[in-house]
Design a protein around this nucleic acid. Structure first.
Lengths: 242, 242
DNA sequence: TCGAGCGTAGAACAGTGTTCGTCAAACGAA
DNA sequence: TTCGTTTGACGAACACTGTTCTACGCTCGA
């Protein structure tokens, strides 16, 4: 307040009770937890570690957060608040859904395996409802029945979440190996390719013959492929498709 | 052996070193772990709990299993060995893929959240390769390029795994609540419906208007819906589709 | 000025996966 | 048969985890 403009009297130890650490609050806790999860994954977000960043013990967090599950949910809410939504244009529904899916994919991916916490958690926060509302408007506007649009919404979230989660587990292994992602990918897919190619051709003709083709394509390509399968599959549910 | 036909002499304490408990072996450990995971989930499969079923401590398991991650992988191998595969008939590729997906879905579901352990784990066991080989033969036979078939295989596994995993988390909550699944579903979806319907109609017109339609359909219906989206999406990749 | 309430913490509880070191049984070679 | 050697079994312990209990101070309203 106005006291900040005055020099602190030297005979009074200033802010003794409040150390340099940021003050404890729900938002602050979520901030710190998001920073940790971005580098070390959910495994790294222990109550002790978060509390340590505030210079205190784990029990202090429970005044602002019910438990770890709620903390993870709050983190997801914060993340989903950062997703930008253009004006829905039903004429370009597929293109816009694709863009949203990619946006969510890349946004979630920044926070490692945090996506795993959203399984079976219907997000009811404002920031998450925003996205659902937008998708419903776009899909019903394009000619999908509300029930079909609701299911498609559900399946798309599941698919995006699952792929981010799977990718994060893969990346965790990369991190543990200590090599660069490129090196690791080359070694990993190389091994996989060699193993498949070495399978007995009489019992595994497909795997041994098509080992090369099957190990093609990185995470992004495969995500796009599956996403397009789902979106194309929606075509026949449009009103215009009878 | 033949000794079993003779009565054990009373002056010799029989099998003192080998108690009634089954002997420790990798297969036996996987057996016990699968029994536990079917009732209590992966959370219940602690090394101590498994060891306790053999009347020993957790360290004894590490002679047969590298760590818990490997144990979970072995459990998945065992489960996938139980999946039956008919003769692939490319003329009915979609129908056969659907049947396989449902079979995997229901098989995996018996073991709760064990499916979560298969994320990003390319299964290289014989029992898992069997399934991949079968799917590749079916899809390439139907007219999909090997690369496309490989990606589709990947996406289908991801989708099935993710839905089983999500469902298991939901069921865990049911179990914790202590009510019957029907009661829980009615209460859960009822709350969800009421909440969505109570949203301000000016900012959430879709959610509030279509709350009823969006909460329709149980887990099986939604799984089938998403599965058909993916399978229908494959149509345009067939050779015959140019 | 004085309670009341709330946020802050330290300590502790009941778990977890995993490792270490010891001990006994089994096996192969002399 | 006897002597290493190897292997599996296993108790104890380590470094963690999420969560709860309880006491302590500070701040705020009456």
């Amino acid at each position: 307040m106005a006291d900040d403009t005055l020099p602190t009297p030297p005979w009074r130890t200033p802010a003794k009770t409040r150390p340099v650490r940021p003050v404890l609050s729900q938002d602050g806790i979520v901030d710190v937890a998001l920073r940790i999860v971005a580098t070390d994954g959910v495994e790294g977000v222990s109550m002790r570690r978060v509390a340590q960043e505030f210079g205190t013990g784990p029990s202090s967090l429970y005044a602002h957060v019910a438990n770890k599950e709620e903390l993870l949910a709050l983190m997801l809410d914060r993340v989903s608040a950062g997703v930008e939504l253009p004006e829905p244009d039903p004429a370009r529904w597929k293109e816009q859904l694709r863009e949203l899916a990619f946006g969510l994919f890349h946004t979630l991916r920044r926070y490692n395996d945090l996506a795993g916490a959203s399984f079976a958690n219907v997000p009811t926060s404002h920031s998450a409802l925003r996205i659902s509302e937008w998708m419903m408007a776009l899909m019903t506007g394009a000619g999908l029945a509300p029930r079909t649009a609701g299911w498609a919404l559900d399946r798309l979230f599941l698919y995006i979440t699952a792929d981010v989660y799977e990718g994060s587990i893969y990346l965790t292994r990369v991190r543990r190996a200590g090599t660069t992602p490129d090196e690791f990918a080359k070694a990993y897919f190389g091994q996989l390719h060699d193993y498949m190619a070495s399978l007995p051709a009489d019992r595994f003709p497909m795997m041994s013959a098509h080992a090369g083709a099957m190990t093609e394509g990185d995470g992004d390509v495969r995500f796009a492929f599956g996403l397009d399968l789902i979106l194309d599959g929606l075509d026949r549910h449009l009103d215009s498709a009878g």
